[in-house]
């Protein structure tokens, strides 16, 4: 069982969601990180950060504009 960290970045504006995700990725090293965001900018920045750090990214969009981003390594 790998550890899962959830980062709730809803309601926060850039660059905070990316920074919180970056800290979680560095802390975990590998495993699964779930990031909750509610802005297009946060979604793109978290995706960009994670891909560039070698994590696989799965985005689940919600109709209300928020998204659950699952990062795995």
């Amino acid at each position: 069982m790998t550890e899962v960290i959830t980062v709730d970045a809803r309601g926060l504006s850039c660059p905070q969601p990316a920074m919180m995700t970056r800290q979680a990725l560095q802390k975990l090293g590998k495993g699964t990180v779930e990031v909750l965001v509610d802005s297009p900018t946060a979604k793109e920045n978290v995706t960009r950060l994670a891909k560039n750090a070698g994590w696989t990214v799965t985005v689940e969009d919600s109709p209300d504009g928020s998204a659950r981003i699952v990062l795995r390594k």
Partner: peptide, 12 residues
């Protein structure tokens, strides 16, 4: 810095 997600919303 862009690779770290330091991208302003205005860019998008």
């Amino acid at each position: 810095l862009a690779a770290m997600g330091m991208v302003p919303g205005g860019l998008y």
